[in-house]
Design a binder for these strands. Sequence first.
DNA 1: GTCTATATAATGATAGAC
DNA 2: GTCTATCATTATATAGAC
Lengths: 207, 207
Amino acid sequence: MAGPDPEDLTARARIRDAALQHFGEHGFDRATIRGIAETAGVSSGLVRHHFGSKEALRDACDAYLAKALERINDQVRTDGATEGVNYVAVAGATFGPHQAYIARALSEGRATSLFDKLVELSQQWLAELDDRRSDAPEVPLKDRAVVAAAMALSIAVLHQQVSRGLGVDVLSPQGAEVLAPILLDLYSHPSLSPEEAAELRSRLSKD
Amino acid sequence: MAGPDPEDLTARARIRDAALQHFGEHGFDRATIRGIAETAGVSSGLVRHHFGSKEALRDACDAYLAKALERINDQVRTDGATEGVNYVAVAGATFGPHQAYIARALSEGRATSLFDKLVELSQQWLAELDDRRSDAPEVPLKDRAVVAAAMALSIAVLHQQVSRGLGVDVLSPQGAEVLAPILLDLYSHPSLSPEEAAELRSRLSKD
DNA sequence: GTCTATATAATGATAGAC
DNA sequence: GTCTATCATTATATAGAC
């Protein structure tokens, strides 16, 4: 387990965690410094003392998450024995509680380094697929990775709509169980046959 | 072309269009009634006169978009000669200018009827695919349609991240051109082989 | 490091004239 | 239908005591 940062568990850390929660639940604009301070068990003045402003507090949240992802990736890279499943478990435990925040931050165009990290992972995944692919891809790996990463995040970002549609909170553990077989099915069945794709591609170049 | 609603082009319509723009650009919370009024060329008092409150104004925006989609779908259903391409063109022309608003509304859990309509379309699409599919799907069509719809919307909702990654504004016409071949490639190549899917599926049921 | 109290600015809502 | 003027609320930012 990654465990908490050193020099954490302080009031500063409590404020940041409370901010993660409030920003995630209510959005940046609706969340209030006073509310965050209350959840953290401190005064609003102390929030300012530590972070300066509401924006700076959000930046700190983004940076904390990026650092956490970095830490996890490093751990996987170092600890060769760690299997993919464990990676997922660790990542889930670390980011699970912050899914709402991450979803909001990403849809607001923030947490860019987090998104970029995910694009990297997506790119590695696609690269492996390319190795055993018959036809040569006509679009750059990186571009496909960007779109694939966005698609992978769509459930989190649109979790309210998806949860409503499926009748389960997809950000909850049960939701994850419901989601898994659906994603498995979707990801193992192409929506377009090679012929259809070729047909549509030729139409594109015609315009 | 659908053209503007009857009883439109009035101050009320201008206010609604301005609201669509401001909510899309700045988000609901940051957008101000005063700013919307200014763009519409009216006073803030008139906004209240017509819509009552900021929330009600947003509801009107959602309803307008849902109605527009309804109108387009009806038109396609009636006018049998309309081809898929035209449908896309009409839909693009109608919703293109409001993509930012739609993206925000969806990620905030709003515009639910719009999302549901898209799930329906997604469901029809998947149903056709199921017909020429060898293995029987193990998850309900509807559930797959919900997730597929969310994935299809991910580019719009995460347009800031995707645009940054691709180096083009994906909500612009050029962006659409860049995007098309990428989506074609992704949608015509499964990320998981049947064997991998089966392997993962068995792991799921084991837990 | 932490708190209380205050200043200030912005905004949604309202009332009433034309 | 449309506008101007005002109210009341809320929340960030600040200053200064402990």
